[in-house]
Design a protein around this nucleic acid. Structure first.
Lengths: 376, 376
DNA sequence: TTGAAAGCGATACCAG
DNA sequence: CTGGTATCGCTTTCAA
């Protein structure tokens, strides 16, 4: 028995009221007595009402304003994230979405400014990379209270009332790095280092934990050093690595969890240690390519920035459309890129960015570049 | 200057005809003179007409019938693919889609039968795993000619007029397997074997080529043996492996590109060779878990069946909706699962299948398990 | 605070 | 073969 989905009219009839009132009640628009509002809400749920989105989009002329607040970044990571967002926004034929990109060069101040600006300009929703989750929390809370959903991308802002978070699966990443480094080292023994942005960032702390746990249980002979924090500053990464190399002569491997792999490689090279080190990095960008090819980097863990962008937009869009308030978390499994499959990955990427430039959408043109895949 | 998108009415007015005629012309429904039809088509394209999908869905009550023709399978692979299709179909709030699953136990006859049945029952579109691409070609061609789009999943049916194909990136898979096996073996030298379904299947041939090429260039000291074809038969895989072990005492590694990894492992175990072999398998399923955990399998290349299903459905759906006829190809990058990150992957999977059972969709319930990610 | 009604852009049917 | 029109479910505006 398939019930026809209930409509506004059904609710109105059941209540002996009008469709206009029902509509206002369901959207808590001004001008409904709380009594009737309650009745409507109840009836809606007993009838199992769900809005017909096609009808909604058809009759409503409004466009959604989405603010995308992200870091400028020293690699292509954030460009890719933004590209993914743009693609996904364009591929929705049913809705008018306007994107406003606000990028800030560093963690310092720009971040909060951008957030304020987004709220001031009445964004309907916000996608953000919270480089300083703590500092941003009150702002995100404010937005959520106002009914402006916020989706975090790449890094979470816990307990901020955000609508959801899209990021790479840190546990998969960290444990994979550990298992790989152990296997690559084979009989070699010694110390292994890990660099992180900052242990206050949950994602980085998690990668560290997963790395440590896995290394301990599978390769107990390798000794894990305390994490090196680069705080997103390349010079700091370089300096701390040089120091490390001096102090730790039995170093055999490094896992770089941040964007800042180039300074680490530079440091190793300057210290003439490169050939002896097994290095696993994160992400994939132009400067890293020769390093992988030359075997300086044994493997890199690709965090699929484009996919993160696409998913973040989808998540936000869903929140905007169904006003669903339940928190959502999406953790993507990373891809592994090494010398062997590097060229194929580069080919993939160039295809993608190419496709991204083509006119998107719909009938005659056809063939939008879809690009989904499971949270797996 | 943003032009309002042209509507049927615009075209009708511009031509001094009626909206009904325009509609018929655009859908080449019976009852339009070829003269007016041509005029309409031209005007539509000069005005840059694109149909308003919201209006379309709202006014059209028709439901799309999609036939999903897949193998029964000896592992969970095809169950996952089907689950992905189901999820994606359910997550589209704008359309009525009815899925009809037709599964056949083997390559033999069932496949064509199922296809015929789908056509007979007037499916609007078909998702298929063409286990015998050659034999199926005429059928797919027939479907395409009738305007029934066919999307292949996991394996392509070249030159069949299919609308598109979703599969794993075979080049990435094969080259990654080669690089990993080389690295894992380290100083060890000897022969490496590869098992495939059948070299007539393009995907398997490609994996072999990529594996061979990469192995040659990066690890020239390893000797690659001729591919072993299991033809999807477990007993055959077992038998041929036993034979191989006898004939090739210096075997050090195996790359299993098919579902049939268990018989290979069994053969190795029975021959008491397991500890000495570095084995890389494909996919992830219950019986493989202990093998990874015990280190019998060094790594497995996860082909993301759920994602393949989701994407295949999306691709078909797009074809159905915009009648875009351009061929599309989507190659997913695989995930790497090894001892270290196995548990995290299993956790991910159980979450997913859990989510898949929840009521999908829309407003009050909220939170459909989205799961996209880039073709990357 | 509520009701009534005019669209939105297609589909589908009926009359000419 | 073609023109006209009711209809889909919702948003939005105008009256009451």
């Amino acid at each position: 028995m398939i019930k026809e989905p209930a409509t506004l009219l059904d609710i109105a009839n059941a209540l002996g009221t009008s469709i206009g009132t029902v509509h206002r009640a369901l959207h808590d628009n001004p001008g409904v007595s709380s009594a009737t509002k309650a009745k409507v809400l109840k009836m809606a749920s007993t009838l199992g009402y769900r809005p017909n989105l096609a009808a909604r989009f058809l009759s409503s002329k409004r466009t959604l304003y989405v603010s995308v607040n992200t870091l400028k970044g020293s690699t292509s990571f954030w460009d890719e994230v933004r590209a993914g967002i743009r693609e996904e926004a364009a591929s929705n034929p049913l809705e008018n979405v306007e994107l406003e990109f606000r990028t800030y060069p560093s963690i310092e101040r720009g971040e909060k400014e951008a957030f304020r600006a987004a709220l001031r300009e009445k964004a309907d929703g916000i996608i953000i990379f919270p480089s300083d989750p703590e500092g941003l929390r009150p702002w995100i809370q404010r937005a959520s209270r106002t009914g402006v959903p916020v989706v975090c991308v790449a890094t979470d802002a816990p307990n901020s009332g955000r609508q959801g978070i899209v990021a790479i699966d840190t546990l998969v990443s960290g444990s994979m790095a550990a298992d790989l480094i152990g296997r690559f080292l084979g009989e070699q023994q010694g110390a292994v280092a890990i660099t992180v942005f900052n242990m206050a960032i949950m994602e980085h702390a998690e990668k560290y934990i997963a790395f440590k746990t896995t290394l301990r249980s599978l390769y107990p002979n390798l000794q894990l050093l305390n994490p090196i924090e680069d705080n997103g500053v390349e010079a700091e990464a370089y300096r701390k690595c040089r120091k490390l190399f001096k102090e730790c002569p039995n170093l055999v491997g490094i896992y770089v969890t941040t964007e800042a792999s180039i300074p680490v490689l530079k440091a190793a090279s300057d210290a003439k240690l490169l050939p002896g080190l097994t290095i696993i990095t994160t992400d994939l960008f132009a400067d890293l390519v020769p390093q992988i090819r030359s075997n300086a980097v044994a493997a890199t863990i690709y965090q699929r920035p484009r996919a993160q962008g696409q998913l973040a937009f989808r998540m936000l869009h869903r929140a905007l459309v169904n006003r669903s308030s339940s928190f959502e978390q999406l953790a993507l499994a990373p891809h592994l890129v090494m010398r062997g499959n590097l060229d194929f990955f580069l080919r993939r990427q160039s295809q993608e960015s190419g496709a991204g430039k083509l006119p998107q959408l719909a009938e005659p043109t056809g063939s939008t570049d879809l690009a989904l895949a499971s949270g797996q």
